[in-house]
Design a protein around this nucleic acid. Structure first.
Length: 640
DNA sequence: GAACACTAGG
């Protein structure tokens, strides 16, 4: 009968070189705590004093929540004279075990007995670190950790080390992190790679991507490891700085990375950033890397979810769904990513079906899933379903509607033209509406040309977010559509006065591994001349086909009419990007355009007609959703 | 020692 070597070593035999106390330690390390304790009980009780066995046994007792076992060993060790300070391992095992068992008085008693004058500094340091990390790891109040830290430095005069910081910093209240950082810098420990990495991730969690970045940039290149890159990339990805995250990833892969290979954690951050910016090429490269180089990625939930999210948001819904179907195990995040994806493609019915399927598989929706579902209903004009889910979320799923759900509902009602209902919903909110809620109402007023309510929403929203340019632009457009030029001038003056500039629209197309970026009226592309010629030609063809614009006149605002009358102004970026695509790709292939702002009404009807004229399909991702133009129609059915 | 999904709008 074959015996596994490790078992043989543990079981021990006449020929085993491992003393029994070392075997106890091995069993503890393997998590076989009951066996370890059984071994201790039946082992040779004679001296030497079990230097390895007793600390291991303490840990095994703590893992099994056997407080009496810890106490017994404690007593035994005291009798043998191993405590308080002659066995540093035992001391730290007892301290961390007492904190695990929440027997803090016993831990403090042990620490109080420590004769600091005659204890080696390293032992004292380990003792404090054990108790601090025990308190931190087991969710005991951070205050306790900090008073211990203070006692360690001030009362006991013991120097802290990197381990102290690595346990303390993650549980520190955000406000004191900079102070700890300064302390770390003064003691020279801030240069330690793990310590720097730790500060980066803590800053990131508190929204301080800039601080994490600063730590990273100040690290010498040679001391940056994979974790450093992961921490700084994730810091930006988590805080919505997708462009910066991708730039950091580029640096990591270049000479600056010094050959550090990304792992699953890196790629999760990168994929999330690709999903947000629409960086399809980078994301597809990452996907290939994942499939080739990350063995078992299908069992890595965050990684699979990040891939699903990437495909769903970058125009490959079928790929997203396929990955979802192939997952051995799914989480609420997997469902939510797919629901949001279908919502963005205007397929609210599929999003609702997925949601119901998720619920029927006993996955309870959370706030984020509800946001995804409600916004899917909103984009598909599913007024009744949206209302139903919103009104039952508390009863059916124990979820209290939060600001973001009200935002979705105001958007849903407003988009459907029920502005008064939307306004009433805001008035009925149990909390004060924030900028997003009023902004959604403002957006609805733009769609339905309601100057009066728009003015109210605008007043509210700029009170809450005075520097958010988008709202000024929306209000200006409402006035423009209504022909109230004095209103436009007023808003423009406010913007000027506050130093706000409209963010320019830009679109890009990927072609042969290169990104081709276009701004409105932008002539910097090498093929600009041909592109503009094509746009002008297409505009002429569109005008002919649509009978001089008669049948689209209803959809056009006066501003857009003005643009149509003078086609040489207002070359919106999506027109240029589509023209580039038409010039550079063969018939039959889909042209994918990613845009930072919403498609305007003029470009929307232009692209519909051009899709019919050229017999091509265009997939355009704008600020919040996809439009697929084909055969003269758009997948949004002109509801967006 | 680091990870996935979050509304609206320009």
């Amino acid at each position: 009968m074959a015996t596994e070597p490790s078992n043989a070593a543990i079981a021990g035999g006449a020929d085993s070189p491992e003393p029994w106390s070392a075997r106890v330690r091995t069993l503890t390390r393997l998590g076989r705590h009951r066996e370890a304790l059984a071994f201790l009980r039946h082992g040779d009780p004679s001296p030497p004093p079990h230097a390895l066995a007793l600390p291991a046994a303490v840990i095994s007792c703590a893992k099994l929540y056997l407080a009496s076992g810890v106490a017994q060993i404690h007593a035994l060790a005291a009798k043998r004279g191993l405590l308080p300070s002659s066995d540093a391992y035992l001391l730290s095992a007892l301290l961390s075990s007492y904190s695990r068992l929440r027997l803090l008085p016993l831990a403090h008693q042990l620490l109080d007995e420590l004769p600091l004058a005659s204890t080696a500094p390293a032992t004292a340091r380990t003792a404090f670190n054990s108790l601090i990390s025990g308190c931190a790891l087991h969710g005991l109040p951070a205050v306790g950790c900090f008073s211990l830290f203070r006692r360690m430095r001030v009362a006991a005069g013991v120097r802290f080390d990197a381990v102290t910081l690595l346990t303390l910093v993650p549980v520190a209240p955000l406000g004191v992190v900079p102070q700890l950082h300064a302390l770390a810098a003064r003691s020279g420990l801030a240069a330690n790679t793990s310590v720097a990495n730790c500060f980066m991730s803590v800053y990131a969690r508190g929204g301080g991507a800039d601080l994490a970045r600063q730590v990273f940039e100040e690290m010498p290149r040679a001391s940056r490891d994979l974790v450093s890159w992961n921490a700084v990339i994730s810091a930006h990805a988590q805080n919505g700085l997708a462009v910066e995250a991708l730039e950091l990833y580029r640096r990591m892969r270049g000479p600056e990375g010094g050959g550090v290979e990304p792992d699953a954690v890196t790629l999760v951050g990168v994929l999330s950033s690709c999903a947000h910016t629409g960086a399809r090429r980078v994301g597809l490269d990452v996907e290939r890397y994942v499939r080739e180089r990350i063995p078992g990625f299908r069992n890595n939930l965050p990684l699979c979810n990040a891939l699903i999210n990437f495909h769903a948001r970058c125009g490959s819904l079928p790929e997203a769904h396929e990955l979802f179907d192939e997952m051995p195990e799914r989480s609420i995040v997997s469902w939510t990513a797919l629901i949001i994806g279908y919502g963005m493609h205007g397929q609210g019915d599929v999003a609702v079906d997925l949601f119901e399927m998720m619920v029927s598989e006993a996955t309870a929706p959370d706030n984020v899933a509800m946001v995804g579902l409600l916004s899917a209903c909103s984009h598909a004009g599913m007024y009744d379903e949206g209302r139903k889910y919103f009104s039952t979320m508390e009863r059916d799923y124990c979820l209290q509607p939060k600001l973001e759900h009200y935002t979705c509902m105001v958007d849903l009602l407003g988009r459907a033209g029920r502005l008064d209902e939307a306004r009433e919903l805001i008035a009925s909110m149990p909390m004060a509406a924030d900028g997003a809620v009023w902004g959604a109402l403002l957006g609805a007023c733009k769609i339905h040309r309601n100057v009066e309510m728009g003015e109210e929403a605008f007043k509210r929203v700029i009170n809450l977010e005075p520097t958010n340019v988008g709202y000024y632009v929306l209000m200006a457009n409402i006035y423009t559509d209504a022909g109230q030029l004095d209103g436009v001038a007023k808003v423009r003056a406010m913007m000027r006065q506050r130093g706000l500039k409209k963010e320019p629209g830009c679109s890009y197309v990927e072609h042969k591994g290169k990104v081709h970026l276009f701004m409105a009226d932008d002539h910097s592309h090498p093929e600009a001349k041909r592109i503009y010629e094509l746009v002008v030609k297409l505009e002429r063809m569109v005008k002919e086909k649509t009978g001089g614009g008669d049948d689209v006149a209803e959809e056009r605002s006066e501003k857009e009419e003005a643009e149509a009358a003078a086609p040489l102004v207002g070359f919106h970026s999506e027109k240029l990007a589509v023209a580039f695509g038409l010039l550079n790709t063969e018939a039959g292939s889909e042209i994918v355009v990613i845009k930072n702002l919403r498609v305007c009404g003029g470009c929307h009807s232009f692209l519909k007609t051009v899709s019919a004229l050229t017999n091509r399909a265009f997939l355009v991702r704008d600020a919040s959703r996809f439009h697929r133009f084909e055969d003269g129609a758009c997948s949004c059915r002109d509801y967006w």
